[in-house]
């Protein structure tokens, strides 16, 4: 009985979610969870709505609950990864994103998510790399570190003040979100400019380098993380070539028939791609 009631509430919540009414959706999912707390989907649905609201910590709680209830929980890992990245934990985010990717590339029913998750794995890798790179740069230059810390503090203070105004009702939802985005953007721009100035003063480390072409997928032009090889020996990122095959089952280069079951993982190339992220400290790349 309670499971049925929970299902009803979930459906109502889904309707609100579709309409973009995320707070209402969260409230209904919460009621559903009180009725039937062992359904993992209720937690992932609430996590998804909370993602839209930017409630990152709550998203993480929901995802962990959901994973406790259902181990191979692709969605929960994907939402978890997004919240972790937002909270600036790219290492954790990458682990979660990879788990989500593995789960969805193994499953036949969830391939439609593979494309988005694949792109997200890359985003985490890049964030992780950038974080490491920032630490390295900061160690090298204490002054830059101090200035960046100041900018970061300023940003956080401004964000807090907007949050307060939002809570006191001085600012509406949309206005608060817009102002926060602006503050974040201004901060990013300042940091970029600051680093550029420091880079000019240190020409040895200024040269931008290109990612080797053999690590880059010819369709998305992104560095690969799960390369597959066609029968003609050409490698692509799994998610992008599958997206192409779904529309047109042909080899992009030779136009001969090509099906998903013709693809084979290219393990050596995958290792080369993984190694790329570990090497090259101190290089700046044209992403």
């Amino acid at each position: 009985m309670s499971a049925y009631a929970a299902e009803q509430l979930k459906e109502k919540g889904n309707a609100h979610f579709k309409a973009g009414e995320y707070e209402e959706a969260v409230a209904l999912y919460s009621q559903a969870i009180q009725k039937h707390s062992t359904n993992p989907l209720l937690y992932t649905n609430r996590a998804n709505a909370r993602l839209k609201l930017g409630l990152w910590e709550e998203v993480i709680d929901d995802c962990l609950h959901s994973i406790e209830l259902l181990q191979d929980n692709m969605k929960a890992y994907y939402f978890l990864a997004q919240a972790q990245l937002e909270l600036n934990h790219p290492n954790e985010a990458l682990v979660s994103a990879k788990t989500a990717y593995d789960l969805c590339s193994k499953s036949f029913t969830q391939t439609s998510s593979a494309f988005a998750i694949s792109a997200f794995v890359l985003k985490c890798k890049r964030a992780k790399w950038e974080l490491r790179e920032r630490d390295r740069l900061r160690r090298r230059n204490a002054l830059l570190d101090e200035l960046e810390t100041k900018l970061e503090q300023d940003r956080n203070r401004e964000l807090e003040s907007i949050k307060d105004q939002h809570e006191q009702g001085v600012l509406g939802d949309v206005a608060a979100r817009e102002e926060m985005d602006e503050v974040r953007q201004t901060y990013e721009d300042k940091v970029t400019e600051l680093r550029n100035v420091f880079a000019i003063a240190d020409p040895q480390n200024m040269t931008k380098r290109e990612i080797p072409e053999y690590l880059v997928d010819d369709i998305s032009f992104e560095i690969m993380h799960d390369p597959v090889v066609t029968k003609h020996g050409h490698s692509y990122e799994r998610a992008t070539i599958i997206e192409h095959i779904k529309r047109n089952p042909s080899d992009p280069l030779t136009r001969e028939a090509l099906f998903i079951h013709d693809l084979r993982p290219n393990i050596a190339l995958k290792k080369a791609c993984d190694a790329f992220w570990e090497q090259h400290p101190g290089c700046e790349f044209e992403w």
Binding site: D218, H244, N248, P252, L253
Partner: peptide
């Protein structure tokens, strides 16, 4: 055309 286009 959609049919003959290649992402390469």
């Amino acid at each position: 055309d959609k049919e003959a286009w290649s992402p390469a």
